[in-house]
């Protein structure tokens, strides 16, 4: 066996204990006669042992505390979403008539309120338009008093 092949096996299968049979016998024979490959084998083994003995460390307790807190947050959020979805599903499947009736009443109230609001807005718009006209007229020399008197009736005609 030449040094190139021997070193390749030393850096992998031989050191990891998976070299078997004839290849192992050949390598062991080579190592007995070649000090360069033997030193490499010793170096790989001793450095590996040094790493194994010194490099294992436990994670600080603070890490678990942070993970636990984050998981609790995730669970609360998921739980909240699930509850809301569950309520909507329950409402749709079991309370359909009630939900529909309530929705219908709410829509009706909303429509009525909107209608009232729109008509009120139109009424005030009519008032201000009428006032502008009155002001313009009074600027033209007519008496302001007569204009103010007319507002009520004019607003009525505006709507009719």
């Amino acid at each position: 066996m030449d040094c190139k092949r021997a070193k390749g096996l030393v850096l992998s299968d031989y050191t990891d204990g998976v070299l078997r049979g004839h290849a192992l016998e050949e390598l062991e024979l080579h190592l007995r006669s070649c000090s360069s490959c033997r030193r490499l084998a010793e170096g790989v083994t001793s450095t590996g042992e040094l790493l194994k003995s010194a490099a294992r460390v436990d994670a600080p307790q603070a890490v678990w505390n942070r993970i636990r807190a984050e998981i609790s947050r995730i669970l609360i959020k998921e739980g909240f979403v699930e509850t809301v979805l569950e309520r909507i599903r329950y409402g749709l499947y079991h309370l359909r008539p009630t939900v529909m009736a309530t929705a219908a009443i709410i829509v009706l109230i909303f429509v009525l309120a909107t209608a009232r609001f729109v008509s009120y807005m139109n009424y005030s718009a009519a008032l201000s338009v009428r006032e502008d006209i009155v002001n313009m007229v009074s600027l033209n020399g007519e008496e302001r008093g007569s204009g103010e008197y007319d507002i009520g009736t004019s607003a009525e005609t505006f709507f009719l």
């Binding site: 850096l11 992998s12 030193r39 010793e42 790989v44 001793s46 450095t47």
Partner: peptide, 25 residues
Amino acid sequence: VRSRLKRARAAMVTCAKREGLNHGL
């Protein structure tokens, strides 16, 4: 994996030697 490990270990031993470990190397 095998070829990467070979190169990694060769580099590792070189570093260890530089560190003054494995004096025989």
